[in-house]
Nucleic acid binder design. Structure first.
Length: 717
DNA sequence: CTTGAGTTGGTTTTT
DNA sequence: CCAACTCAAG
């Protein structure tokens, strides 16, 4: 068995890691090492003789899953990719797990395993069609609203039939009809939306004791990170999974629940002890991440929430910190100040990897980007889905999707005339009418084009050519994904059309190249690469997955994407009423939503280790209109001297120690330093004792000295 | 059938 | 403000 070093663990972490069997709830504040507990517990279970593939760990994002796999491997335990694979622990998100299960148990669900996963824009097309099919107007029944309602129903595991029986007023009855049509359209396309992945899996487990016990047998230990953000469907899946053995271990922090709007049910974690009465509860309250001052304001803020259990944040780190709240004139000035502060930090030796800027809405990244470009500071906007939402990428992927799942009408409609090949709306409508009449898929309709009398000879010929092209591609489906992607790109004519379209096409070409590179990486890194698997994986890609921790660039991201990360220096911008809390959160009336916005700010604050810069602007341009803003109520809750409305510039409200001194108090082994009389040397050891910290330096002269940092006057080189 | 100009409407967070 | 959609001319 591998030799895992457990000595880094604190007693309470140790207790959680080595908890023998049965349900375990780990309530843990920010920066307390809860993910570490899961990681080490996986290792400890394997060391105690549990077979690796009997363990299933659930993370919140794919990124988190990848990282956990890597850490488990680093502990000496084999754990390659996040998927079902023989001798390894299964580490993945709930959604990936569901995809795997649904593929494996296709015969039990009747869902073709080649299903497409529909994202927001695909869903939007389907719902529009559904509303139209119901002969309703999209102005009376806004697609986005309908989708939102349907999603809420799905999160509560209410299917079409049971909603039909409970809907008794006109509005709900209509919604039931739309829901019905929407599900039918998805089924016809052999597609599942994000919610369906969970819903179908939950129903599969609920409906089949056999599957349940099979999976319970397969996974004898279930571990779930970020349990506070699970929804009802995920809860049901978890319950069904462990019904045979109750070996469930969850970690979470109710104060960091920020996905209520997506169906996350905070009651899951609050009621854990009711659900599993023999549960052991372990609290991790020590915080290894942030300096005390940061924890102090975080605590002041979160204490305002009424609907919460009291929890301590016990600081471990020395008390030197830098917390600043500043009001700027407008968003440009704010962004400029952030960029310049970043520059200063960099000049003082900070790595750009250790700096992050958080904001409430994605639209706010633009003004920051401009400021970073002006100041020549490298940055990355953490927005993973953006890439996959580009037109050229979606077009090319649609070609691949249709090869795997010919029923995917959304994909087919997307590419049938992209690039233009003379198959226009009229032709498409005629084929669709034919397909509907004969009760076949659109693709089969195209295949039968010769038999469709309404089509012109020219149209028929074009369709035949198109279908033949796809059939040619199909022959390569079993091969490498990258090769097929490239082939489809060239032979479809997409490449030529991009090359012919000037500058815009040039960046598009670069993007496609990037996609082909990514596909190539997939081919190499995956044990059994398949086009289906590749497409389903990238469909579950999230913003947070795009974060590169060692890019050497400042990270710009939403507060939501910041979940689970930590940085030495954190900027939180736009802390204004209407933005944080966001107006659309209905935070004015709905207290729960206001509390969720507060938790979001709390999550942002607690990402910071040492330096925290919070700011607002007095004027902000929203949708092209310059508006006067009001500082966020949350700013007044931090317990800083932020009592009056910000007039000009609010100077530092709270500076425990100056930034410069603080920087000098931290030395890591390996750091090159210079001493006034001893000359240059290398730090061997740093004993952190607040202002009495001691540093051990081996000087170039050969001698090694222990020095008190505050007297030694060392400078970093 | 294609293209581009003009209009409309929707604007949070994301697996 | 911008993206998605509509519509009319070529």
């Amino acid at each position: 068995m591998p030799d895992v070093k457990y000595d880094q663990l604190t007693p309470s972490q140790r207790k959680a890691v080595f908890h023998a069997e049965g349900p375990l709830l780990v309530i843990a504040g920010p920066g307390s090492g809860k993910t570490r507990v899961i990681t080490y517990r996986v290792a400890a279970l394997i060391n105690s003789g549990i077979k690796p593939d009997n363990i299933c760990a659930i993370t919140f994002t794919n990124k988190a899953a990848d990282e956990m796999c890597q850490r488990v491997v680093a502990l000496g335990i084999p754990a390659e990719g996040p998927r079902f694979a023989g001798t390894q622990p299964h580490i993945s998100t709930f959604h990936s797990l569901c995809v795997t299960i649904l593929r494996q148990y296709a015969d039990k669900t009747g869902i073709n395993p080649n299903f497409s996963i529909y994202n927001e824009s695909d869903q939007s097309r389907c719902i529009k069609q559904a509303v139209k099919d119901c002969e309703l107007d999209t102005t009376d029944f806004p697609p986005a609203r309908m989708l939102d309602n349907i999603s809420k129903l799905k999160n509560r595991l209410i299917d079409v039939d049971s909603f039909k029986t409970e809907a008794n007023d006109f509005l709900r009855k209509t919604l039931a009809r739309i829901y019905d049509h929407y599900q039918r359209i998805l089924a016809e396309h052999n597609a599942l939306d994000f919610d369906d992945l969970l819903v179908k899996t939950a129903f599969l487990l609920e409906g089949s004791g056999e599957v349940c016990s099979e999976l319970g047998n397969r996974f004898k230990f279930l571990l779930i990170d970020e349990y506070q953000d699970t929804n009802h469907a995920q809860y049901k899946i978890a319950r069904a999974f462990v019904s045979a053995h109750n070996n469930i271990c969850v970690t979470g922090d109710p104060d960091q629940s920020i996905y209520r709007w997506r169906g996350a049910d905070i009651r899951n974690i609050l009621a854990f002890e009711n659900d599993w009465p023999d549960a052991t509860v372990i609290k991790l309250e020590e915080n290894f991440r942030s300096r005390p001052k940061i924890l102090e304001i975080a605590d002041k803020l979160i204490t305002v929430n009424r609907n919460r259990k009291k929890k301590k944040l016990i600081p471990i780190k020395p008390p030197i910190a830098h917390v600043v709240v500043t009001a700027f004139e407008d968003e440009t000035e704010e962004a400029e100040a952030v960029a310049q502060q970043v520059k200063e930090l960099k000049d003082k030796g900070a790595s750009l990897n250790d700096i992050a800027v958080f904001y409430r809405v994605n639209a706010m990244s633009r003004v920051l980007e401009e400021a970073f470009i002006r100041n020549k500071m490298p940055y990355q906007v953490v927005r993973g889905v953006e890439f996959y939402n580009r037109k050229e990428i979606r077009d090319l992927l649609a070609y691949l999707k249709i090869l795997v799942n010919p029923s995917d009408e959304i994909a087919l409609l997307r590419i049938i005339n992209t690039p233009p090949r003379g198959i226009g709306k009229t032709t498409v409508d005629r084929v669709r009418a034919y397909a509907a009449l004969h009760n076949i898929t659109f693709f089969d309709g195209l295949k039968n084009a010769e038999d469709i009398d309404s089509l012109s000879k020219a149209a028929k010929a074009k369709i035949v050519a198109f279908v033949n092209m796809l059939e040619q591609f199909k022959k390569d489906v079993a091969g490498k994904v990258a090769a097929l992607t490239e082939r489809a790109f060239v032979e479809s004519g997409l490449e030529k059309s991009l090359r012919d379209s000037g500058d815009q096409g040039k960046t598009a070409l670069e993007n496609v190249n990037e996609l082909i590179n990514a596909a190539h990486r997939y081919d190499q890194q995956t044990e059994e690469p398949s086009l289906l698997d590749y497409l389903q994986q990238i469909a579950l890609f999230s913003d947070a997955d795009a974060y590169d921790a060692s890019s050497g660039r400042v990270a710009l991201m939403t507060l939501h994407a910041a979940k689970g990360l930590e940085f030495e220096n954190v900027f939180i911008v736009g802390v204004e009423e209407g933005l944080l809390p966001h107006e659309r959160s209905n935070a004015g009336e709905d207290k729960d939503e206001l509390e969720e916005e507060r938790r979001l700010f709390f999550v942002g604050i607690t990402r910071a280790k040492t330096q925290l810069y919070i700011s607002c602007a007095r004027y902000r341009t929203v949708r092209g209109q310059l508006l006067r803003t009001i500082p966020s109520q949350f700013l007044f809750e931090l317990g800083l001297d932020f009592t009056e409305r910000p007039q000009e510039n609010i100077a530092s409200s709270c500076v425990t120690q100056s930034t410069i001194r603080n920087m000098q108090y931290d030395f890591a082994p390996g750091q090159r330093v210079r001493h006034k009389s001893f000359g240059p040397g290398t730090v061997k050891e740093f004993i952190d004792m607040w202002e009495n910290s001691i540093v051990v330096v081996k000087f170039n002269s050969g001698q090694t000295k222990s020095l008190m940092v505050k007297y030694a006057d060392l400078s970093k080189i």
